[in-house]
């Protein structure tokens, strides 16, 4: 695994390989529920980025002084406080977005990504590293939300639309599919599951493909080494024969 992952440490690679949603199946509940429009996806994504980054920073600061027995309640309090703050800000500045996202803002508390990153990463790394990790995880989560919402919105309503969450003014609206040809099922629950299945399978296919390539490359390398060894052995054996 390590050879290829060292080679391609690019931004997109991190987005696909460490994708928390389609690769690790974390935070699926909100991904499925709120990706009906691009607006929702971006709003939710930003909320998660903020909570995840700040919670990672706070927890990496708190971790060294927190006794082991109480770390879970402490992390929960930190995360729940942040979510409450973000929820209140959204209620004040983007009320429509807040009401469409509804309980899913509150449910960020139990979003597996956040507690998972706190436990697995932030508790054992320094502040800068934890902040970077939170930002990257949040970005790849947002990226997944946007991918899903684009597919669902375009196929389901035929429109590509984005509006200002503060004033509800439509910023741009583009009809890509004529109204007679849209597939409304993509805006329903069924469409959510199907879109998710296709994207998850695509990520799995990319991973499988890369693994196969790596295995082939390793095998080729091993074969070449074997051949070289055999040749060396032959070369070593020859003078002996000649001497005999």
């Amino acid at each position: 695994m390590s050879t290829a992952s060292e080679k391609k440490q690019g931004f997109w690679r991190e987005m696909i390989y460490n994708n928390p949603v389609f690769g690790l199946y974390l935070g699926i509940c909100s991904t499925l529920a709120i990706t009906t429009t691009l607006n929702n996806a971006i709003g939710m994504g930003i909320a998660v980025i903020v909570v995840l980054t700040v919670s990672n920073i706070v927890i990496s600061l708190l971790a060294p002084i927190t006794p082991d027995e109480i770390h879970i309640p402490v992390y929960i309090v930190v995360i729940a406080t942040l979510v409450t703050v973000v929820g209140m800000l959204m209620q004040a500045y983007t009320p429509t977005l807040y009401s469409t996202l509804g309980t899913f803002i509150d449910l960020i508390v139990v979003n597996c990504i956040i507690l998972g990153r706190a436990e697995a990463y932030a508790s054992s790394h320094n502040v800068a590293e934890s902040a970077r990790d939170g930002l990257m995880m949040g970005l790849s989560y947002t990226f997944s939300l946007i991918a899903m919402s684009l597919i669902r919105q375009i196929l389901g309503t035929g429109l590509l639309e984005f509006s200002n969450p503060m004033s509800n003014q439509v910023i741009f609206s583009l009809r890509l599919i004529p109204e007679a040809f849209v597939i409304p099922v993509f805006t329903t629950q069924t469409g959510a599951f199907l879109t998710f299945a296709v994207l998850a399978a695509a990520v799995a296919a990319i991973k499988n493909n890369d693994e196969k390539k790596e295995a082939a490359a390793l095998k080729a390398k091993a074969d070449a080494e074997k051949a070289a060894k055999a040749a060396a052995a032959k070369a070593a054996a020859k003078p002996v024969k000649e001497a005999a």
């Binding site: 069924t190 469409g191 599951f193």
Partner: peptide, 23 residues
């Protein structure tokens, strides 16, 4: 099941069909 769909992706397809039934 096709290689890439093994495990969770195919489970989501099943869930989609169940969602139709429950609707």
């Amino acid at each position: 099941v096709p290689e890439a769909w093994k495990g969770n992706p195919i489970a989501f397809v099943v869930a989609a069909i169940m969602a139709i039934a429950f609707s």
